[in-house]
Amino acid sequence: MSLSVLICDDSNMARKQVLRILPESLSENVQLATNGVEALEILNNQPIDVLFLDLTMPIVDGVGVLQGIKEAGISVNVFVISADIQPEMQNKVLELGAKAFLRKPVQLDVLTTHLKQHDII
């Protein structure tokens, strides 16, 4: 069964970067969002299994999305993919319920390892 996936990043290039390394089971039902507001709108209206989330974004940033998910009690596996790799930030997103923190630019083997670790694939 294919899982529903949402990629949220303000950069087209970064979204493509994730898209092209997605395993098959995740690449059939993919939606895209370019900022936190768009992402929360999609998350509030339909079930999403996996969210790949950037942090530094305009309007509502990744931390805002994580808070929104928590407040609305939405069930989704969040993988943060960000350039903001400061330890304090990594701890913060994990505390807010993200499954893992992946540093940009994200590599195929790293993504696969994390997805396996959390039983997504």
Binding site: D10, S11, M13, A14, L55, T56, M57, P58, S82, A83, D84, I85, Q86, P87, E88, M89, R103, K104, P105
Partner: peptide, 27 residues
């Protein structure tokens, strides 16, 4: 923009460690 984002992130991480603080990043 994305290249700058990644550079900004890694530079901020180095800075944060060197200055022992947290650097807040904006687009």
């Amino acid at each position: 923009q994305e290249i700058i984002n990644v550079a900004m992130g890694q530079a901020s991480d180095q800075l944060a460690r060197y200055l022992d603080t947290f650097v807040y990043l904006k687009v």
